[in-house]
Design a protein around this nucleic acid. Sequence first.
DNA 1: TATTGTCAACGAAATGTTTCGTAGTTTGAT
DNA 2: ATCAAACTACGAAACATTTCGTTGACAATA
Lengths: 141, 141
Amino acid sequence: MARQPITPTDSELQILSILWDLDPAPGSSHGSSHGLPTGTVRQVHAEITKHRPVGYTTVLKLLQIMLDKGLVLRDESERSHVYRPAVPRAKTQRRLTRDFIDTAFSGSAKSLVIEALGARRPSAEELADIRRLLDEMEGSK
Amino acid sequence: MARQPITPTDSELQILSILWDLDPAPGSSHGSSHGLPTGTVRQVHAEITKHRPVGYTTVLKLLQIMLDKGLVLRDESERSHVYRPAVPRAKTQRRLTRDFIDTAFSGSAKSLVIEALGARRPSAEELADIRRLLDEMEGSK
DNA sequence: TATTGTCAACGAAATGTTTCGTAGTTTGAT
DNA sequence: ATCAAACTACGAAACATTTCGTTGACAATA
């Protein structure tokens, strides 16, 4: 089984984010998530227009293209088709982060971490979480 | 003075990385760096073709476009023009990281840090560096 | 049943990015 | 002085992305 190396564009990523947020099974400890249903074009359009003005058919077209690319799946059993992400958020974030580290930081994760801490200051609790993760990583070497 | 919010494309970023590496003054503690000279089209082309095949004039054109966009500056006093980054690496990385956090991680720096640590495992020394930075950040709250 | 609203499909324009061929200039050897 | 090599500039093709108008199907309602 081959992995699809298709990277979403920024617009596509925005839509994926909305779909991931709509996903009814965000919890549960196993990786895949997915409570199946998820969003219609109208729902996605409603969310997206909170941030920037864009036509309904633009969003529709985007989702159709994303279906072609294999970024989303859809259920056509109802008149209003229901779209859902083809890949879980975590997996996509991992791929994007890997690419980003390579293109913007010459492969140095450390540099990115430092930049991230400086760019959008995490709260004290978040810092504590990060520290905890570091402990784990050093512990289980 | 207004800041130019021009974001380099991936190809442009690749070229910028090469120019930053060529910059003769990477050290010194003040932010701006820049020992002025830096690279010719031929140098950039030579570097870039180590990674992927691309024509000389393609690189030339890219650099001309980047000049238009204000991403690079050039010295035309010699026949072979010499290009150098208009913005220091650190500043660009900060901007890109900010954007990336917002588009891929809904604004959560913490999430990105965690992802980065998982995506490209830093070495033990690097982890120590990160831990040191965390100490500083929590110390000077 | 006629009208109005909601939807998917499609085509195509507008825009942005990447690529390279060609032309013309300058430099350095024969 | 001729020729070849090394450059820049420019135009335009090839792609990819984003945007939306129009069409036709279907559904709800008057």
